[in-house]
C-alpha cells in the first residue's frame, strides 16, 4: 500500500465529514430561514393571542347581538362564494382550455380587481352600481340596492375574492391533462359528462383550495366593503367600528372570531389537497418497481 493510498481514505472521510457538515449547516440555515418566515407570518397571530383577554372575549361575544356580524359575514361570504362557483368556474375552465377569444385579455380583466387597491374598487363600484347609475336603476327595479345593503356587501366581497378564485380555478383546470378529457370523449362521453366525470374530479383539490382562498378573501374583505357596504356590519366592519369607538382591546375578540371562522375552510382544503396530491401525478412517473404480477408469468 502506498502512502497515498493510506492517506486517501482519511482524506475521503474528512471530505465526507466536511460535506456532511456543510449539508448540516445549509440545513440549519434553511431551517432558520423557514423559522424566520414562520415567525414573521405568525407574528400578528401571536400578538393577537398575547393581547386577548379571555374575559373581554367572553363579554364581547355574549353581548346581545354580538354574533350578528358573524352571521352576516358568513352568509354574505357563502353567497359570494356561490356566485363565484357558479359564474367563475365556467369562466376559469374556458380560460384554461383557451375556449375564449383573447384569453390573455380575459386573464388581465380578472386580474384587475387584484391589482387595484380594494378601496379603489369600492370607489369605482360607487360609480358603477350607485343608486343613480344605470346599473343601480336596473337593480332598483329588482328591489335591490348596492349601497349599504346585504347585496352591496356580497358584491364587494365578490369583487375582492373573484381573482383568487378564478385564477386559482384556471390553474387547477389547466393542470388537468387534456389528453384525459380526450380519452373520456373517445370512450363516448359528451362534453358535459367529461367535465363531470374527469375534469371536475381531477381539478377538485385545486378548486377547493381556490375556493378556500376566495372564502378567506371574501370574509375578510374590507376595503371595498367600507365604501359601499358600511352596513350591515360584517366582521371586518365590526372590528373597524369597534376599534374606532372602543379601542384595540374591544376589537380584538372580533378579530379572533374572524380568524376562527375564516381559517377552517382553507385548512381543510389544504389538507385535502395535500392528501390527494400524489395521485395527481399517476401518469408522470413510474412508481417504485411493483412486482409484475401478470398471469402469463406465473
Amino acid at each position: 500500500m502506498t502512502p497515498a493510498d493510506a492517506v486517501a481514505p482519511g482524506r475521503g472521510a474528512a471530505f465526507a465529514v466536511a460535506t456532511a457538515g456543510a449539508r448540516r449547516l445549509s440545513g440549519a440555515a434553511g431551517l432558520a430561514g423557514a423559522a424566520l418566515v414562520l415567525l414573521v407570518l405568525l407574528g400578528p397571530l401571536g400578538a393577537l393571542l398575547a393581547h386577548l383577554d379571555p374575559g373581554a372575549v367572553r363579554r364581547a361575544l355574549t353581548a346581545p347581538g354580538a354574533l350578528q356580524p358573524l352571521v352576516t359575514s358568513v352568509e354574505a361570504s357563502a353567497v359570494a362564494l356561490g356566485v363565484l362557483a357558479a359564474a367563475g368556474t365556467p369562466l376559469a375552465w374556458a380560460m384554461a382550455r383557451g375556449r375564449l377569444p383573447a384569453t390573455r385579455a380575459w386573464e388581465t380583466a380578472v386580474l384587475v380587481p387584484l391589482l387595484l387597491p380594494p378601496l379603489v374598487i369600492g370607489l369605482l363600484l360607487v360609480f358603477l352600481v350607485g343608486p343613480t347609475t344605470p346599473v343601480g336603476e336596473g337593480l332598483s327595479h329588482l328591489h335591490l340596492s348596492a349601497s349599504n345593503t346585504f347585496f352591496a356587501l356580497v358584491l364587494a366581497e365578490v369583487y375582492e375574492a373573484a381573482p383568487y378564485y378564478v385564477l386559482g380555478a384556471e390553474a387547477s383546470f389547466a393542470a388537468v391533462d387534456h389528453e384525459l378529457e380526450q380519452h373520456a370523449a373517445l370512450l363516448g362521453d359528451p362534453p358535459a359528462r367529461v367535465f363531470r366525470r374527469v375534469t371536475l374530479p381531477l381539478a377538485a383539490p385545486g378548486l377547493a383550495s381556490a375556493m378556500a382562498m376566495a372564502w378567506a378573501r371574501a370574509i375578510g374583505a374590507f376595503g371595498a366593503v367600507i365604501v359601499i357596504a358600511y352596513h350591515p356590519y360584517g366582521l371586518p366592519m365590526q372590528i373597524w367600528v369597534t376599534l374606532e369607538s372602543g379601542g384595540l382591546a374591544a376589537a380584538l375578540p372580533y378579530a379572533l372570531v374572524l380568524l376562527v371562522v375564516a381559517l377552517p375552510l382553507p385548512l381543510v382544503a389544504y389538507l385535502w389537497t395535500a392528501r390527494t396530491r400524489p395521485q395527481a401525478g399517476a401518469d408522470a412517473g413510474e412508481p417504485p418497481a411493483v412486482a409484475l404480477a401478470g398471469r402469463w408469468r406465473r
Binding site: L42, L45, G46
Partner: peptide, 13 residues
Amino acid sequence: LVGAGVVAGALLL
C-alpha cells in the same frame, strides 16, 4: 416551532 414563532412574533410586534 409554531409556539416559538408565535411568541417571537409577538415580541417582534
